[in-house]
Design a protein around this nucleic acid. Structure first.
Length: 771
DNA sequence: AAATACATAATTTTT
DNA sequence: TTATGTATTT
């Protein structure tokens, strides 16, 4: 592959200098397939990055290189690092889904698609399926949109068209899925929309059926690098296989022990069978760990040994031993949150670490609530890494629906969402008629709305409303070429959405502020690259992942799910709620395979820790309003028994009710006593404590939640004030504008950066007043 | 057609 | 605890 030697040897040695022999071998590997089995913390990102740079240094054209990562965040990070090594390169670094979307838009003509298609997320998908279920007259009690959707997703992952899927469906459930799949697919196409799976499914099928296109892309992407290969699914596998036939310089990197997306269709066999699929493949194993202490690795290694379906492999490191891994026991989930936050605070006050050195991992997002209040209470800066929350708010979804409909007039789902928002006198009946009319003529709902005067069944207010709505959208179309933020402003003004909120109560004011924030986001998006369109903005939002919203610059504690933590590292890690039913999650307890995946998830979390790892569990956890006794995670019992490696710290029974709880528990709930019961289900507090309570009063009353808000509405805020917000903690008012309900203030938070609030609505406590 | 009140159901992980 | 859907009223 060495073209003439523009390969400056100086560059080359710089690229290899601080790498081990194995890592170097991976970086300089020449042509043909390459499998890099990279254990946790073995520096794989570094290897991929260097390899991209190395390929460039060898004269490989940037346009011939394709690097695929798991999240946009990871793509951005790799982009940054490659750019540092080779400034101004034009290597394609992206995710599978973004690549799919790009290919679909680029080759829309050839694929007989409209390039302005909308990408439907899971919520949209489920709505469409619900409609299809209603249409098919199936009671959606047993066939929930979610389950059917999962079935369809699986089918698409296997690259099965509705017809092919129908042919292979054996049992009743799959037959129903097949039926709905066919209807759903037609609805999608009619709406000029694709779902997440389509972003892989459609390109994969295109490459399968269009040899010319396949060959073209194969030769364009001659050098392909794929990170997190253990989490690829069948569609991705097929896609890659077809892109790497004539030019098989395919480098995949992964670790079977970190495969945690089986539930989403990823197939661990992709990596395990790589050598079978590519017999010419070179295999390089990176098993030296540069991240964690031997104790952490011993603990994680001992745990993962319990997986039966696994290639034996050990984690090695030269790092000094460090602290033992700690198992922390608390009374309640609230205690857990409080004390963990306190410990972190102490660590920082003692100057042993910064806030940003700490991360807290959770199995499920719902667990983050109690943490939030604990952080605020102790004034510890934090960020909860959960990306889509902001765009999931009703007002933002409404706005996005308007924008989608604007870009893609065929998007019937978005049409239905906003046609009567704000109210235009268009009710369910009118929509029924409109749908019937559109169905007959095979036109979109928006087009049908343009014909409303020809539909005799719709009259009066509804007819006028539909006509107005059609005119509104037609009028707005001319704004499409404008920058995203300009379009958004026009939409909220002309649609009456702004007016609707302006007239409303204080909740509406907050909604308005959210919309303003969205405009700011769009503005920033356009500023980064002026060629970006509204369509780009919409796509970016839908394809954003949770970690994408993570800001590693801030000095604050990061809270995230175990899934989001993949690929990251932190000096000090806390894993919370390590209890049977949560980790492993109860929905995975029935199948050994799924428990193994949970164990890998646990392994992933543990191996994120660099120097300190704390595994936490509480005896009592509040869940869905009521308190449940817990059973410690089976994984805690699968750790080494060596006391120098694992240290147990019991922080329970420190307060009155903690002691009472233990007493009550001994008397009142024998099922939950010691270990976990053989069903593996979490212990359950059964109704009233009865006589076992022993005079301590109600033992399961949790400590009251701290409430932080202003005393009255007449608070006079002023710039320079230091205030405390329920969610974001401490901040300083930097700017105030507007009056009455429209009065807004800008607050710069220690944690969350600058945010805008509606003065009347914001719940703030004033901490200090400037002179 | 729209707003309100009430019941009830459900909660993994995510591109 | 929360969100969602259904029934009831205006």
């Amino acid at each position: 592959m060495a073209r003439e030697s523009s390969a400056a040897s100086g560059d080359e040695s710089k690229l290899l200098a601080d790498l081990t022999a194995d890592q170097q071998a991976a970086v300089v590997h020449g042509t043909g397939p390459l499998l890099i089995l990279a254990a946790a913390g073995s520096g794989k990102t570094r290897v991929i990055t260097r390899r991209v740079a190395y390929l460039l240094s060898q004269g490989i054209r940037a346009s011939n290189i394709l690097a695929i990562t798991f999240t946009n965040k990871a793509a951005g990070e790799m982009r940054r690092r490659v750019d540092q090594l080779v400034p101004g390169n034009r290597v394609t670094i992206t995710t599978f889904h973004s690549l799919g979307a790009r290919l679909l838009r680029q080759y829309a003509d050839r694929l007989k698609m409209d390039p302005n298609f909308t990408i439907y997320d899971t919520t949209d998908r489920n709505k469409l399926i619900k409609d299809a279920l209603d249409l098919a007259g199936l009671d959606n009690v047993k066939f929930t949109p979610d389950r059917i959707g999962g079935g369809i997703s699986k089918a698409k992952n296997q690259l099965l068209t509705p017809d092919r899927f129908q042919a292979t469906s054996a049992d009743y459930f799959t037959q129903v899925v097949a039926r709905i799949y066919a209807i759903y697919e037609k609805r999608l196409r009619d709406a000029n929309a694709v779902d997440f799976d389509d972003l892989l499914y459609l390109p994969a099928l295109a490459l399968k059926h269009d040899e010319e296109l396949r060959a073209e892309l194969d030769s364009r992407y001659q050098y392909i690098l794929i990170d997190e290969y253990q989490d690829t699914n069948h569609a991705q596998y097929e896609l890659v296989r077809r892109l790497a036939r004539d030019y098989d310089h395919l480098c995949v990197v992964g670790d079977p022990d970190q495969s945690i997306y089986g539930w989403r269709g990823s197939n661990i066999r992709n990596i395990l069978d790589f050598e079978r699929d590519y017999p010419e493949a070179t295999v390089i194993t990176l098993d030296r760990n540069y991240r964690s202490t031997p104790n952490i690795l011993a603990a994680a290694g001992h745990l993962i040994e319990h997986n039966v379906h696994r290639k034996q492999k050990s984690l090695l490191t030269d790092n000094p031993p460090g602290d033992p891994v700690r198992i922390l026991t608390f009374d309640t989930g609230l205690d857990e949150a409080e004390l963990v936050v306190e410990r972190i605070r102490r660590e920082v006050l003692d100057g042993k670490a910064r806030y940003r050195d700490h991360a807290i991992f959770l199995r499920i997002n719902a667990l983050s609530r109690s943490l939030e209040s604990a952080f605020v209470k102790h004034g510890v800066p934090f960020q909860i890494v959960k990306g889509l929350a902001f765009f999931d708010r009703k007002e933002n979804r409404d706005l996005l629906a308007y924008l989608r409909l604007l870009v893609n007039p065929q998007d019937d789902l978005s049409f239905q969402r906003v046609v009567n928002e704000p109210p235009r006198g268009i009710g369910a009946k009118s929509i029924e008629h409109l749908k019937a009319y559109a169905e007959d003529r095979q036109i979109s709902l928006l087009a049908a709305a343009g014909d409303v005067l020809k539909i005799p069944a719709i009259k009066g207010k509804a007819a006028a409303g539909l006509r107005d709505f059609h005119q509104l959208m037609t009028g707005l179309r001319s704004w499409l070429e404008q920058p995203p933020d300009v379009v958004i402003r026009e939409v909220i003004d002309r649609s009456g959405y702004r007016a609707m909120l302006k007239a409303g109560d204080e909740d509406d004011q907050e909604r308005l502020a959210n919309i303003e924030e969205m405009i700011t986001a769009a503005q920033q998006f356009a500023q980064e690259d002026p060629t970006r369109t509204l369509g780009n903005f919409l796509e970016q939002i839908t394809l954003a992942s949770d970690v994408d919203s993570w800001d590693e610059q801030q000095d604050c504690v990061s809270v995230m799910t175990l899934h989001a933590a993949k690929g990251l590292e932190f000096p000090i890690v806390y894993m919370l709620a390590m209890e049977q039913g949560l980790l492993p999650h109860e929905r995975s307890l029935a199948k050994d395979e799924e428990i193994e995946e949970e164990r890998r998830l646990c392994f992933v979390g543990m191996t994120r820790a660099m120097r300190q790892l704390n595994l936490c569990h509480a005896k009592l956890r509040e869940f869905r309003g009521q308190a449940l006794y817990t059973v410690p995670s089976m994984f805690l019992d699968e750790l080494p028994k060596v006391p120098t490696t694992i240290e147990r710290v019991d922080l329970s029974g420190r307060n009155a009710y903690g002691a009472a709880m233990d007493a009550w528990r001994r008397g009142g709930s024998p099922a939950a006593e010691g270990g976990w019961d053989d069903t593996g289900v979490r212990g359950r507090s059964s109704g009233s404590p009865g006589a076992g309570g022993g005079g301590y009063g109600s033992p399961i009353r949790p400590t009251p939640r701290p409430v932080v808000h202003s005393d009255d509405d007449e608070v006079q805020y002023r710039p320079g004030m230091i205030v405390e917000h329920e969610t974001y903690g401490r901040g300083k008012i930097t700017d105030i504008s507007g009056y009455g309900a429209m009065r807004r203030m800008k607050i710069r938070f220690v944690t969350a950066g600058e945010k805008v609030f509606v003065a009347q609505k914001a719940k703030l406590r004033i901490l200090s007043v400037p002179d």
